[in-house]
Design a protein around this nucleic acid. Sequence first.
RNA 1: GCGGGUGUAGCCAAGUGGUUAAGGCAGAGGAUUGUGGUUCCUCCAUUCGUGGGUUCGAUUCCCAUCAUCCGCCCCA
Length: 455
Amino acid sequence: MTQRITAPRGTHDTLPPDERLVALVEETAARLFARHGLREIRTPIFEATELFARGVGTETDMVAKEMYTFTDRGDRSLTLRPEGTAGVVRAYVEGRLDQALPQPARLWYGGPMFRYERPQKGRQRQFHQIGVEVLGSSSPAIDAEMIVLAHDLQQELLDAVCAWLRDCGVEVPAGLEPTPLEVRINSLGDAACRPVYREALQEWLRQGAGTYCADCLRRTESNPLRVLDCKVPACRTRNAGAPRLQPCASCQDHAAQVRALLEAADVRVVEDPALVRGLDYYSRTVFEMVPAGGGEAAQATVCAGGRYDGLVAELGGADTPAFGWALGLERTVQRLETLLADLSPQDRSRLRADRPVLFMGALEARALPEVFRLGVALRRLGFSVQWLPAAAKPDRILKAAVRADARQVLLVGSDELSSGRARLKDLATREQRDVNLVAAELGTCLKPAGTGLAS
RNA sequence: GCGGGUGUAGCCAAGUGGUUAAGGCAGAGGAUUGUGGUUCCUCCAUUCGUGGGUUCGAUUCCCAUCAUCCGCCCCA
């Protein structure tokens, strides 16, 4: 046998029934985005390397060691995008969306991202994000609106999956759900107050240098805020006495308003002063959604984002405040999968996009064209129809119909061909009724199947 | 990038330095003579992730490699 080619490390195929889960997330998100007036934006999967270096920050791990960078035949340095925001901002500036769209511009995107990392559960080299970006407003109401959106999306997803299971005729397992998410939030300050704090913190850390772990010593110089996030117990204790950010008046005000608005929307948040994001562009509000109860799974952050008021200018646009977040598609699907975890193989096999309303089979080869013709006509009328592509005995067709989870079944043999009539059987009630072999007429006799969200 | 675990069919999984690698689920075909999920029968790994080595002989021991998982780093 020839050498088999496998999927590259850190990539995966999406196979049924997960493909439905993925589509459900995409559909649900798109629906919710539309309600918020967000428009989709599609940007290239690769960009000039310089874009990420400047936008995300040269010192970040993402840029320093995780980029898929290559040189094309024109000797340009290009990089497979490791995140979505930089590309969207680039397009916003390049496409003059500050003028072409009413401000703030409300955008969403989705697609694959690439980071060269050691794969683990919840962390792939090619993964997918769905994200939102609102550019052109510094209002705390935007922060709050987008965080509420992220929060509500998760609930809608659970509802959508449950609805889908019901449509498939599968019992929704009681009490079986993913651990609830909690929204953690922090303010990083702005261009006025953050540098001052950073300096002060760095100074404080250097004084106590001897008592910190090696990572923290390194981070003291590269990214002092991150020291506060260290998990080593000794460092944690020590950090309790670290100076806190003294946000300037406007930052305090901003944070307070975000808090108040979230409260008004009944979204509970956990203030987390240690919350630091790994990308340089964040300012003021940052947040992430993690399973409540803290650290069971290491790679469990489902959604994260924040305000990035300086990025647009950094990338050559006008001074434009903005807010955005991204959710990890695989991590989201992983959570939803817990709803399917306990299903029997029988139930599992019923998980499909669309339950057929009719299953057809030919009893003799000469009836096959008629079955085919009817099937085509019914599908053109909008019905979900399946059939056995070869003549078979009745019990065989019935079995196949049951396995396809069809509502009704129609057998066509020589008797039916000559009379032009056949018996339409309901698989649940076993009742049969006489129908003409005319698609339009047949259509009126078909019982609607559960159609899920597709309808 | 660092440290560790695992790798037998689509899934779960037994197994041993020695001719033919259990079993279950799923899948395919058939029987019960134009009407179904039961039952019954048959089939479904020349091969134990891959490549070397040790050995008379390796799925079993050793090395390498690949993949995956856990922790760290970091992140969605």
